[in-house]
Design a protein around this nucleic acid. Structure first.
Length: 571
DNA sequence: GCCGTTTTCGGCCCGACTGTTTTCAGTCG
């Protein structure tokens, strides 16, 4: 399932790029791009929506696009797509991902110089012909060249843990900048998105130019991309990797509206500005204006308030219904970053972790947890030094001994049991029956009947949690061939818990599926999958995903205190 | 191409920076 969703999203993105390249009017291009995005974020099967005639109920899909979807699903082709792509060489549109090279310049280079791919582009840069075109010049070409260098080395988004680390470093450097009044990360990092494009930092200060100058002198800066009075942009190098960091400087009395603006998302902002316009107001990063008069801007709260909205937590700002909810005062009371009382997926030296059970227990106590589950891998996980039944029972004995010494925390005897390719679990039921909690997961046979295997595991009465249900690895692996809708439906039926794996390269379930699960009444658990003491800190990223999925405290099992959890798990 | 308690047509968010220009176009977010 969902293959058609993905295909159609890709097709509409490409139509948008192609039309933009051909100089089609902007709003039509934007309409295709919006349709692509909503389809991409759909958890429903688009074929099903088409069959039941519900396509048109999706905002962004109107008569025209619905027809094109139907045409594609029925015939496997879409005339509009073929027409849009006509005359455009295969690799050309890909070049739009190069910074400083937009559709206009690319079209010009294609038309005048016959540029068809990256090699052609490099050639016309080197032989000077690109610089001679109308409205082009040495500096523009130089910027495109820099764009190509970035494009070639950094074709990836930044994982959230690394982005967080860099942002913390930049913020602590800038705090000493002359005249700085306030500072905050903004952009997708503040929204806790699973990956980050650029790192955006907002500063409140009077003397923008001085702040920018100070910023460009930060240790690690290897290239200055822009340096104006209110805005600066640099490339920072740490170890082997490079990252783009942007700062914006505004007056203190615009800090709220600027923070709102630079936090985004773009779609959220567009919707917000449209709302402002309807109310006869104008919203920009400098404030909310009624005519010439500024009526809000110092804090985000007052910006939202004057638009008739409750303040919206950054994690919700994706234009997925949060503005309507804020209008009706029905925003969720999101799970808080301090609500977590325990962790249900922890590995130790006994399998592939690097800390002992005792070290993990101590670290969990330090975090104020009331319980943790030790979930070392099962025997078939050879690569991870998986436990045999004997070693598992020995581990549980060790837990019994430790439990006597550490009374302030409950150490749950558990396992992360493999769901084998055959569909069976890696430990016999009579062993699983003795565990306090059983976490089941697929680690092999990613293309082999994964949906059925997960459903079979869900039916096992001893299984409590399904770990990383989609199996994707961010920037690395697509995920299992799995029908998540069926898996969720099964989890709902058997009242099993699904995991939000907080490990930064997993974040699985993701925000969209977590939201879907909540809407279906499924409970979730946020687990770190920690393999050492430091990994326990990943919890905040899992909570970020949960918040992006509109989850409240009651939706997440490990917000329960030990007494409540014990009752819930019938221990 | 989408959308509608002011519209089924005529709107569609707003501004900074850069580079190439003699007032603006392109790109980005």
């Amino acid at each position: 399932m969902n293959n058609k969703n993905k295909e159609l999203a890709q097709i509409f993105y490409k139509i948008a790029d192609a039309l933009e390249f051909k100089g089609e009017q902007v709003f039509r291009v934007l309409a295709y791009r919006k349709a692509a995005r909503v389809i991409e974020e759909l958890t429903d099967d688009i074929e099903e929506l088409n069959r039941s005639g519900k396509l048109r109920t999706i905002p962004g899909i109107g008569e025209g696009i619905a027809k094109k979807i139907d045409e594609y699903l029925k015939t496997g082709r879409m005339k509009k797509y073929e027409e849009a792509m006509r005359g455009i060489p295969e690799e050309l549109l890909e070049l739009l991902n190069i910074q400083n090279l937009g559709p206009k310049t690319l079209a010009l280079a294609h038309k005048e110089l016959g540029v068809k791919n990256l090699a052609d582009l490099k050639r016309v840069i080197e032989n000077g012909s690109l610089a001679k075109l109308f409205r082009m010049g040495e500096k523009k070409v130089e910027n495109i060249k820099k764009g190509i260098a970035l494009y070639e080395q950094a074709q990836r988004r930044i994982p959230i843990d690394i982005a967080t680390k860099i942002a913390d470093m930049v913020v602590s450097y800038l705090k000493n900048a002359p005249g700085l009044k306030n500072i905050s990360p903004s952009g997708s990092l503040r929204r806790m998105k699973e990956t980050i494009g650029d790192i955006d930092i907002l500063v409140a200060a009077k003397n923008g130019a001085k702040i920018v100058e100070y910023f460009t002198k930060m240790p690690g800066v290897i290239q200055v991309l822009a340096a104006g009075d209110t805005k600066g942009s640099v490339i920072v190098k740490t170890e082997d990797e490079t990252f783009q960091v942007d700062i914006r400087i505004v007056d203190e009395d615009s800090y709220g509206s600027a923070l709102q603006y630079f936090t985004g998302s773009k779609d959220h902002n567009v919707a917000l500005r449209t709302l402002a316009k309807e109310k006869g107001l104008k919203l920009s990063e400098y404030g909310v204006y009624k005519g010439e008069k500024k009526v809000a801007g110092r804090s985000e709260e007052e910006v939202y308030q004057i638009l008739g909205l409750k303040w919206i937590p950054p994690e919700l700002r994706e234009n997925r219904g949060e503005i309507e909810a804020a209008q009706k005062d029905t925003l969720p009371n999101l799970i808080d970053y301090n609500d977590i009382k325990g962790d249900f997926q922890i590995h130790t030296v006994n399998s592939d972790g690097s800390a002992t059970i005792e070290e993990m227990v101590k670290a969990a106590i330090e975090r104020g947890y009331e319980y943790i589950a030790i979930t070392d891998h099962s025997k078939s996980a050879n690569y991870a030094n998986g436990l045999t039944v004997d070693r598992l029972l020995a581990e549980w004995d060790e837990i019994d001994r430790l439990q006597k010494r550490y009374k302030s925390i409950k150490i749950l005897k558990a396992t992360e049991v493999d769901i084998l390719t055959s569909g069976k679990l890696d430990f016999p039921d009579k062993i699983l029956a003795q565990a306090d909690i059983v976490v089941a997961a697929v680690h092999q046979g990613f293309k082999h009947h994964v949906t059925e295997r997960l459903c079979y595991a869900i039916e096992n009465p001893h299984v409590d949690i399904i770990a990383h249900p989609s199996g994707r690895l961010i920037n690395k692996r697509e995920g299992y061939e799995v029908d998540l809708e069926k898996v969720l439906e099964h989890a709902r039926k058997y009242q099993k818990i699904l995991e939000i794996n907080a490990y930064p390269n997993r974040l699985d379930l993701n925000d969209i599926w977590a939201k879907r699960a909540k809407e279906m009444g499924i409970k979730l658990a946020i687990n770190t999958d920690a393999h050492n003491v430091a990994d326990l800190a990943w919890m905040r990223f899992g909570i970020g995903i949960a918040r992006r999925g509109w989850l409240e405290k009651a939706d997440v099992i490990n917000t329960k205190n030990w007494a409540e959890l014990r009752k819930y798990l019938k221990l």
